[in-house]
Design a binder for these strands. Sequence first.
DNA 1: CACCTGAGTTGACGTTGTCAAGTTGACAAC
DNA 2: GTTGTCAACTTGACAACGTCAACTCAGGTG
Lengths: 251, 251
Amino acid sequence: MVPATSRSRARARPGDGALLRDEILRAATALLDEAGDESALTLRAVAARAGVTTPSVYLHFANKQDLVEAVCLAVWEDLGRRMREAGTGVEDPYQSMRRRGAAFVRFGLEHPVQYRLLMMRPRSAGQTGWTAADACLAYVGEAIQPCLDAGVLVGDPTRLTLQMLAALHGLVALYLAQPDYPWPDDVETMADEVTRMAGLGSALAGRLRGPGPAPSTSAFAAGFDALAERLHPPRHGAAEGGRPSGGGPLP
Amino acid sequence: MVPATSRSRARARPGDGALLRDEILRAATALLDEAGDESALTLRAVAARAGVTTPSVYLHFANKQDLVEAVCLAVWEDLGRRMREAGTGVEDPYQSMRRRGAAFVRFGLEHPVQYRLLMMRPRSAGQTGWTAADACLAYVGEAIQPCLDAGVLVGDPTRLTLQMLAALHGLVALYLAQPDYPWPDDVETMADEVTRMAGLGSALAGRLRGPGPAPSTSAFAAGFDALAERLHPPRHGAAEGGRPSGGGPLP
DNA sequence: CACCTGAGTTGACGTTGTCAAGTTGACAAC
DNA sequence: GTTGTCAACTTGACAACGTCAACTCAGGTG
C-alpha cells in the first residue's frame, strides 16, 4: 500500500541533498497551518508529507527542536517583512511605531500556532545563537529607535523596547491562551491602545522628570506617579501622610 | 526489585478511594517543583511517586490534561491567597492594586513551571467550566474594582481588567520564555511600572476626555492621544496636516 | 568496469498516554 | 466463619512518539 499522505519522492542527485531540507520545511509549515494544532507537528507526519521516511529528517535537522526552530525562523522572517512594510512610507516615527505594533499583534492573531511555538515554548537548555525570538526583539527595537532619535520618545532604548514588546506580547499571548475571556470585539483597537500606552509611558518619564528630588527607583516610575497625582489627587481621606496615592517604592 | 521512587502503598479502605487523589496531586506538585521542568510530569512518574501503578491515576483523573488542570488549580489558589494577603491592610485601593500586581509577577517568576502550565498552555478543545485561568482574571478584577468604586480609576471594568492582566502577563510570560533578553536587574521594579502604566491609562482616558469631538474609536485611545499631543507636539515638520502625531484610527 | 560516497531506508529501542480485563482485599450478611 | 460483593487497584497490552545504528541503493569518478 502506498503511503496515504503523499507519493514517494525521487531521490535527489548527489550535491542536491539540501533540496530535501526545503521540502521538509514546507511540509512542516503546511502541516501546522492546516491542523492549527502544534501536536500535529510530528516527525512522522512531516516525513510522510515530504514523501520520505521518518529518519530522513535527521539528515537535515539535528532533532525535532531544531526543525521547529527552523520553521519558526521562517515565520518570523515573514513577520519582520510585514512589520517593515507596515512602517515604511510613514514619515512620523510615532505613527510608524503604531503601525508596527498593530502589524505585530495582527500577525500573532492570524498565526496562533506559530506564535505559540515562537514565543511560548520553553527554551531548551544550552540553546544559544541567533533565535527567532531575538529577531523579534530587534523588530520592535527598529520601531522604537527612530522615535528616540526624533525625540518623540525618551528613555533607555533597551528598557523601552522590552516594555513595548512585553505589552504587545501580553495581549497576544493572553488572547491566544485564553480565548474564552470576555474580550471586546475590537482586539486590534485594543492593541493600538496598548502600543500607545507603552510608548506614552516613556514620554511621561522624560517630560515630567524635571527638577526635584532625585528619582529614587526609576525616572520611568517617578514620571507616572507625578502625573498620577496631578490627575487624580486622593479624594477619600486616606489614613496615611502627605502622598498617599502617589508613587515611591513599594515597602 | 522494589520501585526506586517510592514504597508501595497500602490499599485504601472502601469509601476512602479519594485519598489517593490527594496523594497523586501532592506527588505531581512535588515532581514539578523538584524537576523544574514540565516534561518531568509523567503519569508513570507521578504514579510511581504515589506508590501506585500508572493506570490507577485514571481512577481519579479522566486523563493527563485533567490532572495537570487540577495541579494548576491548586497553584492558583495559592496565588489568590497571596494576592489577597498582599492587598489587605492597605487602605488606598491604588496602592493595594500595585501590591497585588507585584504579588502576581513575583509569583509568576518564582513558579515558572506552574505559571507556564497555567497561562501558556494551548487550551484543550471543548474545555469548559471554571478553570484556573478564570480564577486569575477574577483576582485582578478584585484589585481593579475598588479603584473604580473609589474613583481612582475610570473606565470599563472588564476592558481595564483585561488590559491590566495582559500587561502583567506580558512581562512574566516574556521573561519566562526569553530569559536571555537583556533584562534589567530589577524586573520587579519594572513590574511595578507596568502596573502603574496600565492603571494610569484608564485615568487618562477618564480625565482627559471632556468636551470636544466625540471619541471616534474609543475614549481610552482618545485620552492617550490628547495627552500625547500636549506632551510632545511634533517638532519635525511632518508632511501631513494638522494633527500629525496624534491619534485617531490607523488608516 | 569497479569503486566510493552521499542520499535515503529498514528495523529496532525506549518512552509516552491510554484502555480492557483481571485481581485483591475489606466489609456485610448469613 | 464462610460467602458474596463491590470498590480499589494491577496486569498486560496497544499505538504513537523521538531517536539511532546498520543497511541499501544509485550517480558520478577513476
